[in-house]
Design a protein around this nucleic acid. Structure first.
Lengths: 218, 218
DNA sequence: CCGGATCTCCGTACTTGTACGGAGGCCGCT
DNA sequence: AGCGGCCTCCGTACAAGTACGGAGATCCGG
């Protein structure tokens, strides 16, 4: 629109996928890819050192929580537009990404043209969300703002307990870890089960992984 | 090599990733992409209906077990070369893929040129494996053939119990499901824990997902 | 044919998790 | 100040999982 090409940075841990996205974007006349990163830390380095207009960010990268990268990127360079590109449509994920200032949220099973459209949209100061994501957003808005409808948002403490549970600690061990009573951990655990609507630890873990609440243990 | 271009089919559930891979391959002079599929069933349809030399197959697709697709594809058209392209390097995954007749096994964090090299290799009647995969294979071969070293292979029954556990059933419920005693289920459960080297159901589920033994509950 | 692996079942003792229900302190918002 | 959400802790009773160790049946391959 401005006559200058849009400069894009890519952050995705899968080299091959990153390369493919690059090819797609480079096929567009108005877009040029100026940098790539394979993890959150490298992405933030780029944000600080490279002049770019848009960051295409995969939320699922080893080590770092993608949402933290998003927030940090926006803090470092508020004018930077961020397009979230992930395979997860979990409510927790979406809610935290939007609150973190994401300008677009695309699923990896979107059409190729959607990616281009998303980049164009954010450059025009607009937002862009995949259809599935728009539904999530509608659900979020309907309920006032923060608390999603079906899946309730977890409290910080619950999320913390959950991550330790995911690492295989028993309630007793989590209690020691957090210096709280076993009963308290059990309360959090019960609340987690209820909030996520599951009845076993096995499914709890899977839901948590799918929603992007925890990352797999390496 | 033959003067004719290599015809490639793509099977990956993520449209955007698929599109990217297509762009990468189409940038190569000797390669043309002749078809795409978003799930296992569609991939098998293509194998039956389309003349192609190579199938680039993502093992993680909704609904179908990628290994089954691999085996079926080889059964339908034995001459077809199959390049596995996935983000999982789990031993179970690799072992089953190789036994299923995979000609190449690439990780999604491979370099772009590795994909091209893999396609060329299988067309020349050779195999191609990512470095990380080669290590897994070495481990497999060292132990005679079937039983991997660190992670032991699971028996069919154990895998069966595991999938039910992953769906949230208690030992008692699994026992009813399989018409066996609760004690037996508990034995299998204990063996699973030992074989996979974990001490909690939470980690068990994660390892199982990472190794490709179970697929996430939808 | 025998050994090994697998699947099956059992008991017992102990540890954990689950399901109730109740309660006080803290903090932010109205 | 009052309200509500969150975090914290408690008891009790029952269900489930864990850790031992043992054993018979089948099936397959050497």
């Amino acid at each position: 629109m401005t006559g200058r090409r849009t400069r894009v940075m890519l952050a995705d841990d899968h080299t091959l996928v990153r390369g493919g996205i690059r090819k797609i974007l480079e096929g567009q006349p108005g877009i040029e890819v100026v940098a790539e990163a394979a993890d959150g830390a490298a992405a933030l380095d780029l944000v600080g050192s490279t002049e770019a207009d848009v960051l295409v960010l995969d939320l699922k990268m080893p080590g770092t929580d993608g949402i933290d990268v998003l927030r940090a990127a926006k803090a470092i360079r508020p004018g930077l537009k961020v397009v979230i590109l992930t395979m997860h449509a979990g409510q927790e994920y979406v809610a935290r990404a939007v609150k973190g200032g994401a300008d677009a949220y695309l699923l990896k099973d979107s059409a190729v043209q959607d990616l281009v459209a998303a980049v164009s949209a954010v450059m025009a100061g607009q937002t862009y969300f995949s259809p599935a994501i728009q539904q999530q957003l509608a659900g979020l808005l309907r309920n006032g703002g923060q608390p999603p409808s079906g899946t309730q948002t977890l409290t910080d403490r619950e999320r913390e307990v959950l991550t330790w549970l995911a690492r295989g600690l028993s309630s007793k061990e989590v209690a020691k870890e957090l210096n709280i009573s076993v009963r308290t951990v059990e309360t959090h655990r019960a609340n987690l089960m209820h909030k996520l609507g599951v009845k076993s630890v096995a499914v709890l873990i899977q839901v948590a992984m799918r929603e992007g609440i925890i990352d797999p243990t390496p």
